[in-house]
Structures are given as structure tokens and as C-alpha cells.
């Protein structure tokens, strides 16, 4: 499992909307404090969709950092 974190709440929702449009199954979650406090919420995703997720984020111009979750 992976956790994507973004620089703003706005980008979390943009990423979530983009994933929904492209039928990439992700979940918005509260970010564990041990990972980061940069943004209160992030996106949880399965390991096997990381490639699709990254392609989607690149297409939409949304930057993120991926952590093991």
C-alpha cells in the first residue's frame, strides 16, 4: 500500500477527481503524523496501481510524494 501526499488540499481534491474520471480506485485518508504534516489529507492507493496513478498525475500536472503506507 502507498500514500501520496500533496502540497495543498486543493491538489488532493484535484488528484481524487482525476482518479475518479480515469477509474483509478483510490481513497482519501488522514495522513499519519509520522509521515508528514504538510497536508492533513492524502491519497491511499494499492501498489499495483501506482503506475496508472503516476501517469494520471503527470497528465494533470499534479506533483506528489509517494510513501509506503
Amino acid at each position: 500500500m502507498k500514500l501520496a501526499i500533496f502540497e495543498s488540499v486543493r491538489n488532493v481534491t484535484k488528484a481524487d477527481t482525476a482518479c475518479t474520471e480515469q477509474k483509478i480506485d483510490v481513497t482519501i485518508v488522514a495522513i499519519p503524523k509520522e509521515i508528514s504534516s504538510d497536508c492533513g489529507i492524502g491519497i491511499k492507493l494499492d501498489d499495483d496501481i501506482v503506475k496508472d496513478f503516476d501517469a494520471c498525475m503527470v497528465e494533470k500536472g499534479i506533483s506528489y510524494i509517494l510513501y509506503n503506507y
Binding site: 495543498s8 488540499v9 486543493r10 504534516s37 504538510d38 497536508c39 492533513g40
Partner: peptide, 16 residues
């Protein structure tokens, strides 16, 4: 802002 909550400074990210 709900972000960078441990810091006493405002976050650098915008619009936050």
C-alpha cells in the same frame, strides 16, 4: 489551514 499544523508559520503552499 489544516496543513503544516506543527509549524507556527503559515504554510508555503497556496492557496493555503
Amino acid at each position: 489551514t489544516g496543513t503544516s499544523s506543527e509549524s507556527y508559520s503559515m504554510p508555503n503552499s497556496y492557496p493555503d
